[in-house]
């Protein structure tokens, strides 16, 4: 696959950006309809809960996309997907931040006592908060300058945090639902699969390296 750097920068990246922004734009549109009194807005009778779930759902979807980029590039034997990894990761952070904000502002309306109570008492919220806390340094160190400042080795080490964030997010969802629901299990399985792919590849490379040194 040969795509010129210019095409990547001028066409593919903006398109990818638009694609990942789309759910947030659609949500904003529905809020605009709701706030201007259109009864057919798509936010359901409980817009606050809907918004919170929706943003969480999309953060989860984008984390699966982010984790799928490296395996995809291995399978395709192409570097092309790697160009989109940072942007995908930043969108995970953005949707997660919106998800958390909707909880703090819309759901709890800055009731910090209640929020703190949730963080310490409700396991699924604890897990979600830990996942977000781990996303934070990744977002902060996403610029080229930060990569240079940290050095590639340390930067890569730090960004392995995403391998912990994925499962935490999967648990956050699994622990939240009522009854025996399929959807969170499917997402958890997807995340597990993407991590197992890395594990297998790492083991394969280690055996190969050993064979070479022997």
């Amino acid at each position: 696959m040969s795509v010129s750097p210019k095409t990547i920068k001028r066409v593919l990246k903006p398109a990818f950006f638009m694609l990942l922004s789309l759910p947030a734009l659609l949500l904003a549109l529905q809020w605009a309809r709701a706030l201007t009194g259109d009864p057919d807005h798509g936010l359901t009778a409980n817009p606050i809960e809907f918004t919170n779930r929706y943003l969480g759902d999309w953060a989860l979807r984008w984390i699966v996309v982010t984790l799928a980029i490296t395996p995809l590039s291995v399978i395709l034997g192409s570097n092309l997907p790697i160009h989109f990894r940072r942007m995908a990761g930043l969108f995970v952070f953005t949707y997660a931040a919106l998800h958390l904000s909707s909880y703090i502002v819309l759901d709890q309306f800055f009731d910090w006592r209640e929020i703190w109570g949730d963080i310490v008492k409700r396991n699924f919220i604890t897990v979600g908060m830990v996942a977000f806390a781990m996303l934070l340094p990744l977002a902060v160190t996403s610029t080229n300058r930060m990569i240079r400042r940290l050095g590639a080795r340390r930067w890569r080490l730090l960004h392995r945090l995403v391998y912990a964030i994925g499962p935490l997010v999967a648990f956050h969802y699994l622990m939240m639902v009522k009854g025996n629901q399929l959807e969170p299990k499917l997402w958890a399985a997807g995340i597990a699969l993407l991590l197992v792919f890395r594990l297998l590849r790492w083991m394969q490379m280690r055996t190969r390296a050993r064979a070479q040194t022997a």
């Binding site: 009778a45 409980n46 606050i48 809960e49 309306f109 209640e114 109570g117 409700r122 699924f124 622990m175």
Partner: peptide
Amino acid sequence: DHPRWSQRRERRIGEFL
């Protein structure tokens, strides 16, 4: 409380707070 969330308050459908 429900083990996973507080039952102290509720959102009346149609209300913000």
